[in-house]
């Protein structure tokens, strides 16, 4: 079970959290201008990377805050957490 460092509450068990999928997917400003294919891509297509992956998580059973997690999907290592809206850190390996 992952130990997720909530930016507010500190490290807590994964069971207190809900994963909201890939982070940094920008909602189109004018969805009406998009054709079906572009809109479908926004809705459904995700990168699902092996390795470093930015995800959205919410501390459902704690402070109820959303935040982003940079996690390595191979090692399960959590590299960093950062606030919603911030750019993904271009961190080195640690």
């Amino acid at each position: 079970m992952l130990l997720i460092p909530c930016p507010w509450c500190g490290p807590r068990d994964e069971t207190e959290f809900t994963c909201g999928g890939e982070a940094h997917i920008v909602t189109p400003r004018a969805p009406e201008d998009l054709d079906d294919e572009a809109w479908g891509e926004f809705l459904y297509l995700r990168t699902n990377p092996k390795g470093r992956c930015a995800e959205r998580w919410v501390h459902t059973h704690g402070c109820r805050r959303w935040f982003n997690v940079l996690r390595d999907t191979v090692t399960e290592r959590i590299l960093t957490v950062y606030e919603v809206g911030a750019r993904p850190p271009q961190a080195g390996d640690d």
Binding site: T18, G20, T27, R56, V58, T60, R64, R65, W66, V84, G85
Partner: peptide
Amino acid sequence: FAWMEEWLQTEWP
């Protein structure tokens, strides 16, 4: 309830 909070925090701050 969670979904409303999600939209407020992540899309419509």
